[in-house]
Design a binder for these strands. Structure first.
Lengths: 191, 191
DNA sequence: GTCTATATAATGATAGAC
DNA sequence: GTCTATCATTATATAGAC
């Protein structure tokens, strides 16, 4: 550990998230997390005050990344390109954040009961506001929500089973772009 | 209550489902269900051997309805109209089955851990097979999944907040039909 | 069909030693 | 920063009376 600070905290986050995605938030006990980490429960409590706190820390991490997109989008003002916004969201959904989004999408009821005033969800609300033209018709509203779902679902191996993993993000992106674009108009995928 | 035969079993199903949707499957205890029913836990165990059994019974109920659609679709053979299939699915998603679909969609990880060899999910797999032309490209596959999501999400009051409840199903149906139809072609909504 | 009472196990969380 | 030991609470589930 020369110069290296303890990385236990990050390891807890990572393993907890893995288990949450695998078997759900409620079903995953601190004992399980501790076992897989090969420490005791008490050690967890040194790093996180409660189980909810682990989730909160996970959200803070990603909320920061969402903020960057939000800041960019607000700078654009009225000239905001929704296509470009979706492109940026697609990048947000890829990479190291993949499991968090699956966690959110597949544990909705469990999460809604967390006492946390969820810092991620309020930001996603803001994203939807930007994605939907003001006073958009309900169809457009629904399509915007689905665009986000498409991005996340595209990373789920069970959904695009016979598509090589490296191709999935682009498939998801194309479908998402179709959903936010007026029908009939073609869209371009920027990479 | 006068002259009424015991409908306790159905009341358990209904209340359990309400709670599952409200706060998630794992978080909902038999004690809570019993309390809201104003009976004791032991009474529940007379009707259902385990907590999982309640879920199983919920699924059997709806699986029957899915089977009717599957039977119809298979009768159509190669001439199956995917538009009409979506129309029938839309009706399946409406009415008394609304909460079950929300339950499934918002408790995915919790459900996947149930020891039940889920009779609903295998049927939904079959639906997807019918919805997707054989060997469909991944985009089409994803869009088919999203069509189902659209139907369910349309019933979620939080998604289409400012749309009157009676209009939501039709909005969802239109979006779902767009998703299964080749781009650019207009679709008709049969009611 | 519903009750009281209880068995048994697991959970989130804490105290305090090292 | 991690440990042992323990607490209070809750959970699913059962036995047996009425």
């Amino acid at each position: 550990m020369a110069g290296r600070r303890s990385d236990t905290r990050e390891r807890i986050q990572q393993i907890a998230l893995d288990l949450f995605v695998e078997q759900g938030y409620e079903k995953t006990s601190l004992r399980e997390i501790a076992e897989r980490l090969e420490v005791t429960k008490a050690a967890l409590y040194y790093h996180f005050r409660t189980k909810e706190d682990i989730v909160r820390s996970l959200f803070e991490d990603i909320a920061e990344a969402v903020d960057e997109v939000l800041d960019w989008a607000r700078e654009q003002g009225e000239g905001l390109s929704r296509t470009e916004l979706v492109n940026r969201l697609a990048q947000l959904v890829r990479g190291r954040f993949v499991p968090i989004w699956r966690f959110v999408q597949e544990n909705q009821t469990a999460l809604k009961e967390l006492h946390v005033s969820n810092p991620l969800m309020s930001r996603m609300q803001a994203i939807f506001q930007l994605l939907c033209p003001k006073g958009a018709d309900p169809e457009t509203q629904l399509r915007s929500r689905l665009a986000l779902v498409a991005l996340v679902m595209g990373n789920n191996p069970e959904v695009l089973a016979d598509t090589p993993e490296e191709d999935r993000p682009e498939v998801a992106l194309r479908v998402a772009l179709q959903l936010v674009s007026p029908r009939g108009r073609e869209v371009e995928t920027a990479t």
